[in-house]
Write a protein that binds this DNA or RNA. Structure first.
Lengths: 189, 189
DNA sequence: TGTACATCAGTGAACGCGCGTTCACTGATGTAC
DNA sequence: TGTACATCAGTGAACGCGCGTTCACTGATGTAC
């Protein structure tokens, strides 16, 4: 989309920056994600993004927020589509699949603490865990519910991280996830 | 250590670079870790490290290798010192403690796939898992042993990652680890 | 023991690069009257 | 409906910076004879 095609104003540069950044993360890692590259990819001058994001951190926070939303949606969809007794496996598989499909974004989301100055990111992260917590509430007694959720999330997050970084060799990710979850979470519903 | 104190030759610049890099990672993150900063901290000219590392990647790989060795040592020590029935909890606690004590190094170790061109890093990573595998061999039937090790490692790694990034709130890490491990790994020995 | 010389391990200056961000600006848009 | 004007959303050039790496070099070390 050249300037001549779209005129002087972009229309929705805020969203276009996010899209450009996501596209850059599909082909590179966080180190390749510069504000200038985002602007380039959006077909806009290097400082145009500053009209929509106060600084680079704000863009990164927006990216992470979007990532958590997508992840949450994927989890909810997997949960809804799961056969009886396979809800946790389904969510775990979706979680790992998300990480493997968007490695750089996943690392961006989880690679550093959520920025204090961008609370909507933290909120989105918490929202993503809602489907898991809801299922846990069905099968785990109240006393150990928090611990179970923490444990299940850790398990699945660890699987994703280790698979992402190739620490588990070349095994088929979906098979590993299935085996690990059914073994470690027999409380599955 | 100025040039005048130590003379023209450094003595062991290779190790000094590693130490400098580790020190930089204690106070900053991977983005702050430049070859030039390492050289500066080691009190040496910007390109002196090139006598000992072909490029920056080689230094990073050496750092990660050292990290895996330390982690492996910590795990083995925790395992050896554990009370009966608490070996897995002890190792998990040590794992998480290592991550929290060296966040930037931990992220460097696990933040990207081990470099193909530095196989000693991969080797060190595998060596670090030996104590866990050995304990697993005692309590888990051969058929599900690999799955158990993968699951236990994932659980503990996920805990470390989530705690590191503040995704589990402000709860006391050691307490969380203890609760999660005893709940999720009742097979503990 | 002394000396010539190869090799090793540093120095210091320079390269080109891309970065985040700021500045002064201008074209486009929309609103008040 | 037309016009003046404030505001918004871009442009393009420039800033200073630190980076990884290379170059030509020199001081220190050790070995052969």
């Amino acid at each position: 989309v050249s300037t001549s095609e779209r005129g002087y104003h972009h229309g929705d540069l805020r969203a276009a920056c996010l899209d450009a950044a996501l596209a850059l993360l599909e082909t590179g890692d966080e180190a390749d994600l510069s504000l200038r590259a985002v602007a380039r990819r959006a077909g806009v001058s290097p400082n145009a993004p500053y009209r929509h994001y106060p600084d680079k951190d704000a863009l990164l926070a927006a990216l992470a927020t979007r990532g958590y939303q997508q992840l949450g949606d994927d989890l909810a969809a997997a949960d809804a589509a799961a056969e009886p007794g396979r809800h946790f496996v389904a969510m775990a598989t979706a979680y790992v699949a998300y990480a493997l499909a968007h490695p750089a974004l996943f690392r961006l989301m989880f690679g550093h603490p959520c920025s204090r100055s961008h609370p909507e990111t933290t909120e989105a992260a918490h929202a993503a865990a809602v489907p898991l917590a809801a299922r846990a509430a069905e099968v785990v007694p109240p006393g150990s519910r928090d611990t179970f959720v923490t444990g299940a999330w850790s398990l699945v997050h660890g699987l994703a991280a280790l698979l992402l970084d190739g620490k588990l060799g070349d095994s088929d990710p979906a098979a590993v996830v299935d085996r690990v979850i059914t073994t470690m979470l027999p409380a599955s519903t």
